[in-house]
Nucleic acid binder design. Sequence first.
DNA 1: ATTCATTGCTACAAATTATGTAGCAATACT
DNA 2: AGTATTGCTACATAATTTGTAGCAATGAAT
Lengths: 110, 110
Amino acid sequence: MNLPIPGQPVRGSKTGQPIMALFDLLGRSWAMGIIWHLAKGPSTFRGLQTYCESISPTSLNKRIKELRDSYLIVKTIDGYALTEQGKELYGLIEPLGLWAKGWSKNFKKQ
Amino acid sequence: MNLPIPGQPVRGSKTGQPIMALFDLLGRSWAMGIIWHLAKGPSTFRGLQTYCESISPTSLNKRIKELRDSYLIVKTIDGYALTEQGKELYGLIEPLGLWAKGWSKNFKKQ
DNA sequence: ATTCATTGCTACAAATTATGTAGCAATACT
DNA sequence: AGTATTGCTACATAATTTGTAGCAATGAAT
């Protein structure tokens, strides 16, 4: 499956409801991590590679293409950066950071 | 990689910061879809299978185990259901639904 | 002007993950 | 007793991701 396009069948949804297309896009490895990182400011390919630790350049490049084709990031003189829509989306996922800290306490027992 | 546990290395993060563990968990196929569906009410295994259309029982069962082990869903007499934490998380991802509808207009040109 | 470092990738094999289909034991219903 | 539904497991095939190597293009330093 290629780029998940709302309204067309996407990975796991024949109707391609927007939320399903978004889940398909964000569910791919490192997609949310890339957005999270770019929210702090533009970053080069190598910068993203360092941030994402173990991502392969193959995957990173694929992810970048998808996010660009989805209007969430663009290439600027300073590197890749979030678009206005990308920033909006970040605003929605940002609260997960704080929530995740609370959630992580469940596992502290081990 | 097995269950992503905050504080331990997860898929793509050696330090396992909570947000990274959460992204690993939610990034797996159908994880967010399952939460989205259970937010409407409890659902049986077969109910989830129908909702998720193309998911294989193998994947669904794996995802269910992970979400249970992560304290986000539980098995009840009525089927699988969100825990309080799962409901909290849903509250955070729910706004994505509306946003996705606006985002999808980008693609309408084709 | 030429080394040297950095950047933005591509190629490709190996490992991991997901799909698709079959099927089966355990309950519930008729 | 027979039939349907549920909650799975098994297993082969397909798709995705990782890990590593490497290379052309740009820029800085000598």
